[in-house]
Amino acid sequence: MPAIAPWVRTHRIISFFALTYTLSWCLLPFGTFLPTGALIAALVVISIADGKAGLKQLWARIIKWDVGWVWWFAAIAIPVALLTVTIALSIWVGAEPSWGQFHPWYSVIVVVAGRMVDPLNGPLAEEPSYRGFAQPTLQSRM
C-alpha cells in the first residue's frame, strides 16, 4: 500500500474514476453491478490521500445544507407527493392495489425515508462521491 499512496495523492481523479468503474462493474459477469462503487472509491482515495482529515471534510460537506426550511420541506414532501401521485395514477388506469403492503399506514413514510438514505439506492452513494469528492477536486485545479 505505501508504494501506491504517493501516486494516488498526485492522481486523485484518475484513481477515483478507475476505482469507481472497476468496483461498480466488477459484478457484471454475475448479472448485476455495485451501485455503491463510487462511494467506496471516494472513501478509499480520500483515506489514502488525505487520511482522517479528508474523511472529516467529506462528512462536513455531506451534512452541511444551508438552505431555508422551505427547501427542507420540499426535499421531504416532493418524493412523498410523487409516490402518492404514482399510486393514484396506477389505480386510475385500472391497477388493482394491494393495500396489504401499506399496513400499517405509516409504512409508506418509512419506505420513502429508507429509500432517501439507503446507500444501495443511489443518492447517498452518488452525491458524496461525485459532488462531494470529484467535483471539488476538479474545481480546485480548473
Rank of each mutant, 00 (worst) to 15 (best):
W7I: 11
A53K: 12
W92N: 03
S140I: 05
F133K: 07
T22W: 07
G54W: 11
R9D: 14
L55Y: 11
A81S: 14
D66S: 11
G114A: 10
M142L: 12
W59M: 05
L27G: 00
A88P: 07
I48G: 00
Y106E: 14
L89H: 07
P79V: 03
A49M: 07
I13G: 03
F133A: 04
K52L: 11
I76V: 09
R131Q: 04
T20R: 01
P6K: 08
L28N: 09
S107K: 06
G100P: 03
G68F: 10
E96P: 00
Y106P: 00
E127L: 10
W59E: 03
K56C: 08
L28Y: 12
T36A: 15
V44L: 13
G122S: 06
V70M: 02
W92P: 01
I91Q: 01
W71A: 07
S140V: 05
G122W: 13
V108T: 06
T86R: 08
A113G: 04
T22Q: 01
A49D: 06
A81R: 05
R61P: 03
P29Q: 09
Q139C: 06
L83M: 12
A38K: 00
V108Y: 10
T10D: 13
W99F: 13
A125T: 02
V67W: 05
W92H: 11
A53D: 13
G122T: 06
G51V: 10
W65V: 02
P136M: 15
V70N: 03
S47W: 14
V110F: 12
W105C: 07
W71F: 13
V45L: 01
P119W: 10
G31C: 10
F102Q: 04
V45K: 00
A5D: 11
I40V: 11
A134G: 01
V70L: 07
P119R: 01
G31S: 08
Q57H: 08
N121S: 12
P128T: 10
G114R: 04
S98T: 05
S107G: 04
E127N: 04
T137G: 00
L34S: 08
L138Q: 06
P2D: 11
G68H: 07
M116R: 05
W59H: 08
V70H: 06
A3C: 10
V80F: 15
T22F: 12
T84R: 02
I4N: 09
P97H: 08
W7P: 05
A41V: 10
V111A: 15
W99M: 13
P123K: 08
F102S: 08
L43I: 09
I78T: 09
W71R: 08
K52F: 11
L58P: 02
K64S: 03
F73G: 01
W92K: 08
E96W: 06
V44I: 15
G132K: 07
L138D: 06
V44D: 01
P123H: 12
Q57I: 04
P2F: 12
L27K: 02
G132V: 06
T86D: 13
F102T: 04
W72M: 01
A18L: 15
I109C: 07
V93A: 03
K56E: 13
